[in-house]
Amino acid sequence: MTSNDDQKSVLYTDVCLLLFLALIGIMAILMALTGHVLLNTIFLFCTLAVLLITYFFGIIASLITNLGFIALQTIIVIYQYLDGTQTIPWGLTYWMILPLLLSVTLYFMTKNQVKLQKINGALRANIIEQGAFDDETKLRTTVAYMEDAAVFIETNKRFKLPVTTIIVKIRYFNDLKRMMGPEQLRNLLKLTSNVIKQATRDNDITYLLNNEDPTWAILLFTDTDGAQIAANRIKQAFDKQLNNSSLASLAIAMVVGVATWNPEEMKNPHDLIDAGVRKTQYDVQ
């Protein structure tokens, strides 16, 4: 739904609310002017019941109930006329119209509110999805890494499975950035992301932690030695793909850092990332 549709829904809801309040005000004034306390009280409770039915069961049930309410009023009027004890209370005929108008107004107001709630729910889901996935590479981002790493760490506590992260960066990226055009930068980002995904196992999750200074991460249930083997495999695949791409003429190299979760030295997933980033500084191969 477009923003114009959203604005229209909000406007319709506001208009229906104002109409509903205006009808309530008119009903209160008419109840005071007509003076039939007993009948006004009975009809008021009947109207509240009709509105509850409208809210919970929709417009069809509301219209049927309104017809029943009108029939009830007609029977009361006919009874009073035939009994001859009272004159027909013409002043109370507004009860045949106002409950119906209130029901219709309430229905459209709640209908637009439900529509707005669905829109808000979709927006929240979209925000979460955009926060968890990178649009360009379709990789998970730092948001997802933090959530997943917490699960990995909890698994480490319960089952003593080693948890290791591989941090991948491009050596001297800031210098390369000044020499490369936007298209080349996008190609480098996609190439590296694809290589990492293809070179890792299906149960190893890949993340793009930073777009500005491209930083990738992989979470693995393995020890440092096993992660180092995976890191070397990624570097070899990267060099091979790079030599067969349009970026082959540039002096591009990948650096990796491997860090294993250590509960005695680390408190949260940020510490695991920081340890991996520090290890990339010592990758001189």
Score class of each variant (00 low, 15 high):
Q241A: 13
D14N: 10
K111D: 13
A32N: 10
G121C: 03
I76E: 10
L220H: 03
I196W: 01
E154Q: 10
S245K: 05
I170G: 05
Y12W: 02
I70D: 15
Q236E: 05
S193P: 05
M146E: 01
T142E: 14
D5Y: 09
K197D: 04
Y107C: 07
D83M: 14
H270N: 04
P99M: 12
A230I: 06
K118V: 01
L30G: 04
L33M: 08
G68A: 10
L185Q: 09
K177D: 04
I70V: 14
D239N: 12
Q184E: 11
L272Q: 00
L116Q: 00
F56C: 07
D14A: 14
E154A: 05
S3D: 10
G131A: 10
I78W: 13
D83I: 02
K160Q: 12
D271H: 09
K240I: 12
I218H: 05
V15W: 11
W95C: 03
L39V: 08
L139K: 04
L189M: 12
I273K: 10
T41V: 11
D274I: 13
L188G: 00
L51I: 04
F133T: 10
S3E: 09
N194Y: 08
Q236M: 08
N120E: 01
D14M: 12
L242C: 01
I97R: 11
T142M: 12
A32C: 06
T260L: 01
I24M: 14
F173T: 09
L30V: 12
N187Q: 07
T85N: 15
H36Q: 06
T224M: 04
T54H: 06
F43G: 04
I234D: 02
K240S: 07
G276H: 06
I24R: 09
A275E: 13
F56I: 05
V258T: 07
L11G: 05
T47V: 12
W216M: 02
L18M: 05
K157M: 13
N244D: 09
L102F: 03
F45V: 14
V168W: 09
Q198L: 13
I29W: 12
I218W: 08
D175K: 15
L106S: 14
A199N: 04
F43Q: 08
L272V: 01
T34I: 04
K177W: 06
L161K: 15
L100G: 15
T13V: 14
F20S: 15
R201N: 05
T105C: 09
F57P: 09
D283W: 07
L23I: 08
F20E: 02
M31F: 02
D225C: 02
